[in-house]
């Protein structure tokens, strides 16, 4: 009886009834493709120029405009102070007219010194 059963099992293994039809194979494949995960596309990082990197580093438009204003103010101060400070000051140092006394600055310093 075991031989008979083993024989029946063997025949059942190759039985055409137990093989899927083309229609089922097509349906399964259609499901597989319809449900297949779409691979995540890793977008290229946008390339940034050096100027753009600097621009961003100082804080964008706001930071840049502040920086420009501060720069312009420095330039103005430089030019505005040139006549009175740099040239006259330089002449005063280089030229002979460099003797200043405490009395020239006002106040009675001699009295203060005598008192002290």
């Amino acid at each position: 009886m075991d031989d008979m059963l083993n024989n029946l099992f063997e025949e059942a293994r190759g039985a055409p009834d137990a093989a899927p039809g083309d229609d089922l194979m097509a349906r399964v494949l259609a499901d597989a493709i319809a449900l297949q995960p779409v691979p995540a596309v890793v977008a290229d990082r946008p390339r940034r120029s050096l100027m753009r990197a600097i621009f961003d580093a100082v804080g964008g438009w706001q930071g840049t405009s502040g920086l420009v204003a501060a720069t312009m103010a420095s330039v103005w101060i430089g030019f505005a102070g040139t006549d009175t400070l740099t040239l006259e000051g330089l002449q005063a140092v280089v030229g002979g007219d460099t003797d200043y006394y405490l009395s020239d600055l006002g106040g009675d310093f001699s009295f203060t010194i005598e008192e002290g």
């Binding site: 137990a18 093989a19 899927p20 089922l24 194979m25 399964v28 494949l29 597989a32 493709i33 297949q36 995960p37 779409v38 691979p39």
Partner: peptide, 20 residues
């Protein structure tokens, strides 16, 4: 990972076992 050939292979390989 989105490989369509793998979908075909798995279908061909597994459907007969599952259906049987």
């Amino acid at each position: 990972n989105g490989d369509v050939a793998a979908a075909r292979s798995l279908t061909a390989r597994l459907t007969p076992k599952v259906f049987g």
